[in-house]
Computed example of a mutant assay.
Amino acid sequence: MDIFDRLEDLVNRNEDLTAELSNPDVVNNQERFRKLMKEQNDLVPIVNAFIEYKSCKQNIADSLVMLDEESDDEMRELAKDELNDSKARVEELEQEIKVLLLPKDPNDDKNVFVEIRAGAGGDEAALFASELYRMYSRYAERARWKVEMVSFNENGIGGFKEVVFMINGQGAYSKLKYESGVHRVQRVPETESGGRIHTSTATVAIMPEVEDVEVEINMNDCRFDVFRSSGNGGQCVNTTDSAVRLTHMPSGIVISCQDEKSQLKNKDKAMKVLRAKLYELEEEKKNNAEAEVRRSQVGTGDRSEKIRTYNFPQGRVTEHRINLTLYKIDSIMDGYIDEIIDSLTAADQAAKLSNLDN
């Protein structure tokens, strides 16, 4: 089946979905209705692009006929303009359609857990970790996504040794998935009297939220310990044993959750983080087995991969995977990271398209 046959099939499927979604039996079955709506939402951009593509191709044919038959100079000039515009748009649409037909990451629409850990650099690394937390929080707020704290370990001077939080929002994973890896900061710490530039690091892990059915957990493998929350959190948080430490014995993963006042809610959050971490471990195994494919993509998601440097004295941020340097560090640290994310997405799509052509 060539690409045009496939596109025609998608147009027909979209029409079938429209008919199904107007069926009262489907409307009354919420689970089926949501599933079909999601399928149609995924199809609509491809179908619309293909319809416009066919329209442009028809415009090209009509313009060529007009140029062949028309003797009026003004009309011929109009036909030439229409021909050139349509040809240019057809080239754009061919590229758009190729991108839209790339296999979609099944996690793209999911919420994410973000884990930031201070690396080399002591207190300076912890301060940088807290700045990254603020950067992602500000980015999420602008996207009208909800940010929920899961757990944190402060260093006493406003930094985080470790912080885990959740971002709830449509397509959060599709935007943030390239952020996993080592982020490096170069600057003069406030405590540095000699004015020397120090290099510190923080590790970021982006994990999609996963459903119970995607990762099966044997509760006999889990141990829950409860303790009194520390830090800010309201009247009840610090006076009851509401915080939860979850230990998953087979993997050795330990998760502390103390943000909620309810022990039950903290347990629920801890289980969600555990599912995400176990899912990430499984994905890592798969990716290692497909090492060649992963190497062709922008970023492997490996936590040990150095992906970005934030150089404060020079006011620049360098994204190493695509050799992108931006001299706007203040706005980036304030959450304006769209240019970086869009460039990474475009580079990854280009790499995947190149693999398809080879």
Rank of each mutant, 00 (worst) to 15 (best):
V163W: 00
A140H: 07
Y136K: 09
Y178K: 12
Y178M: 13
G181I: 02
I116T: 06
V163I: 13
N155E: 15
E162L: 03
W145N: 04
R144H: 12
A125P: 15
V114D: 02
M149K: 07
G156S: 05
N155H: 15
D123G: 14
M149T: 03
S130P: 10
I116E: 05
V114N: 08
V182A: 02
A126Q: 10
E131Q: 15
I167D: 00
Y173W: 04
F152A: 01
M149H: 07
I157W: 03
M166N: 02
Y173G: 07
G158W: 01
V150L: 02
I167W: 01
R184C: 04
G181L: 05
K146E: 04
P189F: 12
R184Q: 06
E192F: 11
E148Q: 10
N155P: 14
Q170F: 05
G171N: 01
Y139P: 15
S130R: 05
L132A: 13
T191P: 08
I157M: 08
R142C: 08
R134D: 15
N153F: 06
L132K: 13
A129K: 12
G121E: 01
A118C: 13
A120V: 13
Y139R: 14
D123V: 15
G156C: 04
A140L: 03
M166S: 08
D123C: 13
K146M: 05
S151Q: 13
L176P: 08
S130V: 10
I167V: 12
F113E: 02
M135K: 11
E141F: 10
I116Q: 02
A172L: 06
G169E: 00
S180L: 06
F160L: 04
M135N: 08
G121C: 08
L176I: 10
M166I: 00
K177W: 03
V114H: 06
A120K: 11
S193P: 09
Y139Q: 14
V114T: 04
